[in-house]
Simulated assay, not measured.
Amino acid sequence: MFRPLSLALTPLALVLAACSPAEPQGEVKPRPALVVQPEGADTLMDIFPGEVRARYEPELAFRIGGKISRRLVTVGDRVEQGQPLAELNAEDVGLELDAARARLASARADHRLAASELERYRPLVDRGVVSRSQFDSVESRFQAAEAQLKQARAQMDVARNQAGYAVLEAPDNGVIARRLAEAGQVVAAGQTVFVLAVDGDREVRIDLPEQDIDRFQVGDEVTIELWSRPGDTFPGRIRELAPSADPASRTFEARVAFDNGEVGAELGQSARVLVHGGNGADALSLPLSAVTADDGDAYVWVVNPDDLTLKKTPVETGAYHAERVPVLAGLAADAWVVAAGTQVLRDGQTVKPVDRQNRPLHLNGKGGE
């Protein structure tokens, strides 16, 4: 008799059990937080990748147009001054030289004939055998023949030079940095065939962003580091700034000079140019990961050393750099700031400060294990 009543009460018991208070959960442990203190803005560095180049890199080209018959060097070859680099098909310039020789021979014959005729007419006009007007005509022909001879000699010199221009020679000792033409190619006069890296001074080529170009001037001191020798830095200075931006990259080319004799840098090596980016003696700097923005306003998470709680602190920042950002106002020099995972933090949250090696830090005796 009582079994149906027992079955009817079972759902009610389940509902009451579900509505009963849950057992209290354990206290949430403070989460570890990587914290750092701000550094002086004089530690800020802008880093620009670059490549070691020769200071002088002339573009070599033929002075006449034609078809390249032979290419005698390639990229990376070391050449000496006067060494042939490439040759044009000399058939056309050879024919022009032959024509110039023929014109010169004809001009010389005309000049000899005019000179001898002038010598015959000179005594005749003195004796009155020929008229003065006839003598003047003979004298004019001689002067014209003399001018034509000079012209033929000049044309001969030009043709001889043109024949010499069919061979492209190295103007200095150096290394072929680029090759822009090949055997069988027809090139115009002045079209670049090779780029020569002249022996001597070396420098680093970098590209500067257009928004920061006003910060740089010729003569500014910088620091150079070779990728092959990390940690070794060398002093340098900006030697040259491009007057206009590259139309494709919208960056300004800069050349940074340094003492290659001391550094021993080779062509093509990768390098970094470090530019100090201080923002005043009172400015501080933080890692990029420590600064967050909310509706365009920058802020950081500052740890209260007394109770290890977080406070959202608005700050004023300067121009962002490659790895750090200057903080111009809103932050004390001895503050402890969270430097990672800032997007998951909340105001008033308790944290356990650690350093970059995940070792506990003690702030005013708080923190740690």
Rank of each mutant, 00 (worst) to 15 (best):
F2E: 12
R3M: 10
R3N: 14
P4Y: 06
L7Y: 07
A8Q: 05
V15H: 06
A17Y: 15
S20C: 08
E23G: 10
R31T: 11
V36A: 02
P38W: 01
L44M: 10
L44P: 08
I47A: 09
E51C: 03
V52T: 09
R55D: 06
R55S: 03
G66C: 11
S69H: 07
R78Q: 15
V79W: 04
L85E: 02
L85Q: 06
N89R: 13
E91T: 05
E91D: 14
V93T: 08
E96C: 13
L97Q: 07
D98E: 13
D98C: 00
A100C: 12
R103T: 07
L104T: 02
L104D: 03
S106H: 13
A107V: 14
H111E: 15
R112N: 11
R112K: 13
R112E: 14
L113R: 05
L113S: 13
A114E: 13
S116R: 11
E117S: 12
L118E: 13
L124H: 07
D126Y: 08
R127T: 14
G128S: 11
V129D: 02
S131F: 00
S133G: 06
D136M: 07
D136V: 01
E139T: 12
Q143F: 09
A144G: 15
A145P: 13
E146V: 10
K150V: 14
R153H: 10
A154Y: 05
D157P: 01
N161A: 10
A163K: 08
V167W: 04
L168P: 11
L168N: 07
P171T: 01
N173F: 07
V175A: 07
R179D: 09
L180H: 09
E182G: 07
G184K: 08
V186Q: 12
Q191S: 06
T192Q: 05
V195T: 09
L196R: 01
G200D: 07
D201M: 06
R202N: 06
E203F: 03
V204T: 02
R205F: 10
F216S: 08
E221C: 05
E221S: 10
D232H: 15
F234V: 12
F234H: 10
G236S: 06
R237Q: 14
E240L: 12
P243R: 09
A245F: 04
T251Y: 01
T251L: 02
F252Y: 15
R255A: 01
R255H: 05
G261Y: 15
G261S: 12
S270K: 15
S270M: 15
A271P: 15
V273S: 07
L274T: 04
G277M: 04
N279R: 10
S285N: 02
S285Q: 11
P287H: 02
S289E: 10
T292L: 09
A293V: 13
D297P: 09
D297C: 02
A298Q: 09
V300R: 00
W301A: 00
W301M: 03
V303Y: 03
P305G: 01
P305F: 04
D306I: 04
L308M: 05
L308S: 11
L310K: 04
K311F: 03
K311E: 15
K312P: 11
V315P: 03
E316F: 00
H321D: 08
R324Y: 01
R324G: 00
V325K: 02
V327F: 02
L328C: 03
A329R: 11
A329G: 00
A329C: 08
D334K: 05
W336A: 00
V338R: 00
Q349C: 02
K352P: 00
P360C: 09
N364H: 08
